[in-house]
Write a protein that binds this DNA or RNA. Sequence first.
RNA 1: GCCGAUGUAGCUCAGCCGGUAGAGCAACUGAUUCGUAAUCAGUAGGUCCGCGGUUCGAAUCCGCGCAUCGGCUCCA
Length: 638
Amino acid sequence: MKEIKVKLPDGVEKSVPAGMTVQEMITAWNPEVLSSTMAARVNQTPVDLSYALPADGTISLIDVQSREGLGILRHSISHVMAQAVQDTFRNVQVSIGPSIEDGFYYDFEYAETFTPEDLEKIEKRMREIAAANHSFKRREVSRDEAISLFKSKGESYKVELLNDLPEEVKTVSLYTQGGYLDLCRGPHIPSTGMIKAFKLLNVAGAYWRGDEKNKMLQRIYGTGFATEEQLVEHLRIVEEAKKRDHRRLGRELDLFQMNDEAGPGLIIFHPKGMMLRYLIEEWERKEHLKRGYDMVMGPQILKSELWKKSGHFDHYRENMYFTEVDEQSYGIKPMNCLSHMLIYKSKIRSYRDLPLRYFELGTVHRHEKTGVLHGLMRARQFTQDDAHILCTPEQLNSEIRAIADFVAYAMKIFGFEYEVELSTRPEKSIGSDADWDLATSALEGALKDNKMHYDINEGDGAFYGPKIDFKLKDALKRKWQCATIQCDFTLPERFDLSYIGPDGEKHRPVMLHRVILGAIERFMGVLIEHYAGAFPVWLSPVQAVVLSVTDKHIPYGEKVYQQLIDAGIRAEKGFDNEKLGFKIRQAQMQKIPYMLVIGDREMEVGHISPRQRDGKNLGSMGVDAFIALIREQTAQYQ
RNA sequence: GCCGAUGUAGCUCAGCCGGUAGAGCAACUGAUUCGUAAUCAGUAGGUCCGCGGUUCGAAUCCGCGCAUCGGCUCCA
C-alpha cells in the first residue's frame, strides 16, 4: 500500500498508509486527546476525524475548549435536536441549524406550536440519542441526488437551499446520525456519545432566510458545553448578567420609568436618572465646544413640505409622526438635519467659513414597531448628540478622522470597547452611484488613515449615504449601535447648499451626519449595564451619603451635609433611626460610591469616616480632605 | 409588524380541579440609640392588565384588546 507523510500536531513527521483516518492517526499518536477532539484540520481545512487522508498533509486538532471546537460540538447538538424533534413530532420540516455565539438553534416548520413542555420531551429524546452513541457519517452526493433525496422526504426548505447553491457546486455533503439525515458542510463530532451537557432554552419565531416576506418558522434555541460544570457556569453567568439589565437597575436605583399610561417606548426620567443624563450632556457640550462645534437648536415640528424636499417623506414616512396645525401638515422630526440645513442657508457662505459644525442635543420621535421597543435602548422618543458638518470635499477626510478620534476618546472616558462597521449602499436609497462611491471611499479612507479595524456591512447604509457605525455590547452581549458617521451628498443637493470658493464660483459643500454617544437614552442603557449601576464618582447621581450612628449625631451630620453641598458634591442624608449596618446596606444597594460614617469619634474632632462602595474603610479624615479627594477623582471630567 | 410566553400589593412572587386573595421585602406607627451589608413589634396596602363571554359563582375557563419579556424583521 502507498505510504504518505503526515505532520502530527507536535510537529513530528510520520509515514502512514494512504487512506488512514485522522482518528486512527491520533489514536496511534496520543489517544488521550481523542475525548476532547471534536474535529481536525488537514492542511488548514477542517475535516471530520473519520476523514481518510489520501495524500501528504499537516494535521492539527480542534479541541472542544477552543472556540471552533465548541462551535462544532454545538452544531452537532443542533443536528441531534433536529433528529429528536422529528422523532417526537410528525409533519415537521427542518431548515437550518447553525451554532451561534453562546449556543445553537434550529429552525423548523411545524403547524403546531412548540411549548416549554415540548422542549422537555425533545431534550429527553436528545439524551437517548446521545446515550445511543450514534456516529456522524459523512457522504458526498451529487446535487441532483440530494435534491431528489430531500424531495422524497418532503423537506422543501432543504430542496430550496440546494436549488439556490451557486451553479458551480456539483456535489454536496450529507451527514447522518442514527437514521437522521441532514444537508451539511460539516465537520461534525465523531459520535453523539460525545454530547454530555446541553440545554434547550426557548422557542422564538424567525423568518425563513431572515426575510419578513417569508414564512415564519419556529426557532428553538439551546446551548451546549463540553462538561456539565461549564454548562451550569454559563447559565449562572447569564443569570448574573440579567441582574445588570438596565430596566431592572433603572427601577432599583430609581433612575427612570416606562409607564403604560404614558405610552409604550416613552421614557420618564426620575431625579437620579436625570442627574446622570445631565452629567453626560454637560460633558458632551464641553467636549464639542473644545472641538470647534457650534451649538444650535431647531424646532420639534417642521412643515411636511420640507420633509418632502429632504426625501424623508418618501423614504422615512412610515417611521414619522405627523400633525396638523392651521390646516397645514407638519412632521415631528425623526432627525435633526433639516434645521441645520436652514441655518447653513441663512446666508451666503465662503470657503473660509468651512467646515461648519452644527451640534444639537436634538430630541427626535420615531414610530418604532411595537415588537422592537426595549427599555432605554429602543424608545420612540430619544435625544441624539447630533451634529452636521458642512465642508469642502477636500476637508472630508480630516473631518471624518477627527470624528473617529472623538468617538475613540469618548469611549475611553466611559470605559467601553466597541466594534466598527462600514455600511454600504442599501437597495432603497437616493443619489448617484458616483456620489455613493466617493462617500464610501472617503469613510473607508479615513478609517484606514486612522488605522482602525473595521468590518464591512454590505447594503446597510442610510438611504442618503454610507456610514461608519460603532457598536457597544449590553450585559447580555447584544450589540447596540451608538456612534455613527454618515456621509451625505444628497441633502446639500436637495437644499441647493453652496459656498463661494477661492475662484469666486459657487460650489456644493459635502455634509457629514454624526453622533458620538448616539442616542443619550440608549447610551445610558448601555452605560448602566456596563457599570452594573455602580457608576464612577463623576457620573454617580449621589456621590456620598452621610450616615449617623445614632440620633445624637444628626445635628453634626446636617453640618457635614451642608458643607458637601456647598462644595458642589452630590450628597444625601442617611439619618433615619436605623442601625448603621442597615444604612450601610441600603447605601450599598444603591451603589453610592462613598458612605460617610459619623459617630462620637468623628464628631469630637470634626471628622468623617468614609467607607468606599468596595467595602474599604478610608479611616477618619476632615471634611475638607474628603472634598479634595472627590475633586481629584472628578477633575479630568470637568 | 410577525412568532411565542407572561401580566396578582410599590418590588419579588405563591394562590391546586372555578367557591370570592396571601407571603417576604418596601411603606407607615411605636419601641430601641445601636460603629461598617438586614433590631423588634404592630398597622395599612388589591379594578387579580382592560373589555366582553361561559357559569349559580371567574384571579382561575373562552374571545378580543393593551402592555411587558424573549426572538425575527427594522433601527440610534
